[in-house]
């Protein structure tokens, strides 16, 4: 398998436009995520979606609570549904395989693969956040941002999984898999923010030419 690029995107249900009602608080984030998916998949033969499953932050059988939006194959995992939705918004028509992570990723030899990596940072950054306030969130997210911005896949394989679980950070499940597939990459951290007390990242990684 040859990984040519990866898009790192959040897995918040609010990337489904209809779920936030009349308002669209994450419009800019969605736009950045779709652009990263479009850029990562350009020139690839196939897409592999890395969809975290673990804990209440990364449910394996998420269902649309509004019953009013497009169906994405529920009750699949939240990560897979968001991933497929982003690929749709990016008009991607490539073959898609979804892999639950942590787990093994495999694809035929000689195929150019684009990864879509779903995962978030810490969810405990302020009163009202899913994990309330945990001061460890701030250095944890800074560290993630540095690794994603530097294309440091090796660093991603060394994340503190226990801390990530305590901070409800879904990236703890998927980012190490990205790191093992792309130990070094040319990277852009395109978006970072915590508008709802939970850090979202959008990054584009491209395989470093040897």
């Amino acid at each position: 398998m040859s990984v040519v690029a990866a898009a790192v995107c959040p897995m918040t249900p609010l990337l489904f436009r209809h779920l936030s009602g009349l308002a669209d608080p994450l419009a800019e984030l969605r736009e950045a995520a779709v652009a990263a998916v479009r850029d990562a998949t350009a020139g690839a033969d196939e897409v592999v979606v890395l969809a975290p499953i673990g804990g209440r932050e990364a449910p394996g059988d998420w269902r649309d609570p509004s019953h009013s939006g497009p169906v994405h194959g529920e009750p699949l995992s939240l990560g897979e549904q968001v991933g497929r939705h982003l690929l749709g918004l990016a008009d991607c028509t490539l073959p898609v395989t979804c892999v639950e992570v942590p787990g093994l990723v495999a694809a035929p030899q000689g195929v150019k693969v684009a990864l879509l990596v779903l995962g978030d940072g810490a969810a405990a950054r302020r009163n009202g956040a899913p994990g309330y306030i945990d001061e460890r969130s701030f250095p944890y997210d800074d560290h993630l941002a540095a690794l994603l911005g530097d294309g440091d896949g090796t660093g991603l394989t060394q994340l503190d999984e226990k801390l990530g679980a305590e901070l409800l950070a879904t990236g703890r499940l998927s980012f190490p898999v990205l790191g093992s597939l792309m130990p070094q990459a040319d990277a852009e951290l395109r978006w970072r923010g915590d508008p709802l007390g939970l850090t979202y990242f959008v990054a584009l990684w491209r395989a470093r030419s040897r």
Binding site: P13, R56, E57, P59, R63, P65, P75, L78, P130
Partner: peptide
Amino acid sequence: QPPHRVSYADV
């Protein structure tokens, strides 16, 4: 505990 990404087949 605050709710987070909760879902139900039929609430």
